[in-house]
């Protein structure tokens, strides 16, 4: 589904990613872990097309197409979804309106009929239960006045509504208390099928108690230093990130 080859990227002249290789297939869950400032959030943002980052080398192939030249909205309509680390507040734009617009854009892309507000309401009610969210939040403005936990749940709600092929979850777990973490994780698990894939960017091992990754990659200083199965996360929790940089045997790459 997604193939990243030798990806280099920079922001304001600073190189953040220094040659990333990654292969994600349908049905897989990949966890990207790493210390703060390692470039793991950057990787998610670049796949989604954030304008602040410049790709200087390498390629990102998604479903056979090069993503790099596409606008963020084009990528989104093709099924790339990002759950933001800091979901943005948009005053004056109602949550349900945004989701309907976004949903109908994807319908159009697929050549299907858009849903009218009533049909959409029926559609979304089911999804609300998934993240145990109050219906009232639909009528509020996007993320305005939401608590931290509500914002994160709102991201997963949008994911449920838009049914992406590739979900990039950027530190969705950080800042959540344990109850919220459980709700969000269960939501993500329910959305996970054999046809879609999840890339989970996280700083903490905690979320992996709820979501079982097929692969864990450790990103340090713009490079993947180690890849492995879910047991790698436990090792990391035990030994800290220094342990990885000390044991380098990486993804076919020299340190």
């Amino acid at each position: 589904m997604l193939t990243i080859k030798n990806l280099h990227a920079e922001v304001e002249g600073n190189e953040i990613l220094k040659g990333i290789n990654l292969e994600i297939k349908a049905g897989e869950v990949h966890a990207i872990m790493g210390p703060n400032g390692s470039g793991k959030s950057t990787l998610a943002k670049i796949i989604a097309g954030h304008p602040s980052y410049e790709v200087t080398q390498g390629e990102i192939i998604y479903e056979g197409e090069d993503l790099i030249e596409m606008e963020p909205d084009e990528r989104a309509r093709k099924g790339v979804f990002m759950a933001f680390q800091y979901p943005v507040e948009i005053p004056g734009v109602s949550n349900s309106m945004l989701m309907r617009e976004a949903y109908n854009e994807i319908q159009k892309e697929k050549g299907l009929d858009p849903l009218d507000p009533l049909e959409f309401e029926d559609y979304i009610i089911d999804k609300l239960n998934l993240v145990e969210m109050d219906q009232k939040l639909l009528d509020r403005n996007v993320n305005v006045g939401f608590s931290g936990g509500e914002k994160k749940r709102n991201e997963i709600l949008q994911m449920a509504v838009l049914k992406p092929k590739l979900a990039l979850l950027d530190e969705t777990d950080s800042g959540l208390d344990i109850d919220a973490l459980r709700i969000v994780s269960e939501g993500i698990n329910k959305l996970n099928t054999k046809d879609n894939a999840v890339m989970l960017v996280t700083h903490y091992q905690r979320i992996l108690n709820y979501i079982t990754p097929d692969f864990v990659h450790v990103l340090v200083n713009g490079r993947i230093h180690k890849s492995g199965g879910k047991e790698l996360a436990l090792e990391l929790e035990k030994h800290g990130y220094e342990w990885v940089t000390a044991n380098t045997e990486v993804n076919g790459e020299a340190k």
Binding site: E71, P72, D73, R77, M82, V88, I90, E101
Partner: peptide
């Protein structure tokens, strides 16, 4: 009108 707000909406499939 922030770059971040526009990116957020684009990420949800709306054009600029």
């Amino acid at each position: 009108i922030g770059e971040d707000q526009i990116f957020y909406l684009q990420q949800r499939g709306l054009d600029e």
